[in-house]
């Protein structure tokens, strides 16, 4: 393409875009174009309801599932299923929330919604006792093994400081849409854990992260594939003894909150705030923000707050 062609193409494109803004009234266009429709929030925080009901309201507020999932697309929903612990202790993502997300993705026209996690405890027990396998099946989703090596392929991590290559699950590599659905909880060394650490469940060689440079590797891998949507489950929050917990309800705070965003860093920062800490104090989050993966400063994020 020589310079003339480039200018022509660029000109044509800008004309087209202008026309589209003039004609189009879709909310997505409204964000960039001059319109009376208020811009969509970058982060939706909702509290006071049941997981499924909160999700329905929040997803509408952020522009509807149709904004993220188009007809015929394959979708990966990645909850935290890391621990062989019952749902009421908040070690894994709420199964009702997972159910609602899958249903919503199918309603938006998804061809297939798959769910997996490379669990910490033995996978059969995690899938079963977290209640997530049953939730996925009843929502019509596909529950995929995450603890078998044949599903993992080597990928290059762009801009990786410590982590340059990783073995990633083929669903993370190949799915058209990636929805990260972590649970917020306490964490021994990282302070808290939510969406970014949830990505550790999409790689095979997770043990090496601990052996080398955990925080840097968490931040590095976040650049591999940005989620199309992050849904932080802060319905039941394990405030201490995380990430696995000691199966004690006394450790669980009923926050009844969800956070939705396309910005993994912003969602994580809001989650840290919910937990009563400062985002800048969480090292992997700071590193990710420095990499330009999202906004850590919530004052610069357009937030819609909803109470049910």
């Amino acid at each position: 393409m020589n310079r003339r062609e480039f200018i022509k193409t660029a000109f044509n494109l800008s004309v087209l875009t202008g026309a589209a803004i003039a004609v189009g009234k879709t909310p997505l266009m409204a964000v960039t174009g001059k319109s009376t429709v208020p811009p969509l929030p970058e982060l939706v925080a909702i509290k006071g309801g049941e997981p499924g009901a909160m999700f329905e309201v929040a997803i509408k507020a952020i522009g509807g599932m149709g904004r993220f999932v188009k007809k015929g697309q394959t979708v990966l929903v990645k909850p935290n299923i890391g621990w062989d612990v019952a749902p009421e202790f908040g070690a894994d993502t709420n199964p009702d929330l997972v159910y609602a997300v899958i249903k919503s993705a199918y309603a938006a026209g998804a061809k297939r919604v798959s769910v997996f996690d490379h669990t910490c405890d033995s996978w059969e027990e995690c899938y079963k006792n977290s209640g997530i396998e049953a939730a996925v099946r009843s929502a019509g989703g596909v529950i995929v093994p995450g603890s078998r090596k044949e599903y993992y392929k080597e990928v290059t991590v762009p801009g990786g400081v410590s982590l340059k290559k990783a073995m990633a699950h083929e669903l993370l590599i190949n799915s058209d849409v990636f929805i990260n659905v972590p649970v917020l909880k306490s964490h021994g060394s990282a302070g808290i854990t939510a969406g970014m650490k949830n990505l550790m469940g999409t790689v095979w060689d997770r043990g090496s992260w601990h052996a080398t440079d955990l925080h840097q590797r968490i931040a590095d891998f976040a650049a591999y594939r940005k989620p199309d949507l992050v849904i932080v489950d802060a319905y039941r929050v394990m405030m201490s003894h995380g990430p696995k917990g000691i199966q004690s309800l006394a450790d669980v705070a009923m926050m009844r909150t969800l956070l939705l965003s396309r910005d993994l860093v912003a969602a994580e920062a809001a989650a840290v705030k919910l937990f009563g800490q400062e985002p800048a104090q969480v090292k992997y989050l700071r590193l990710a923000a420095e990499k330009g993966l999202g906004k850590i400063d919530l004052s610069k994020v357009r937030i819609q707050r909803i109470e049910l």
């Binding site: 201490s240 450790d251 705030k273 009563g276």
Partner: peptide
Amino acid sequence: KSIGVKWEETRDFPF
């Protein structure tokens, strides 16, 4: 033993 939860429900979001 659980050390208990240090969290109080507030009306507003902390952000």
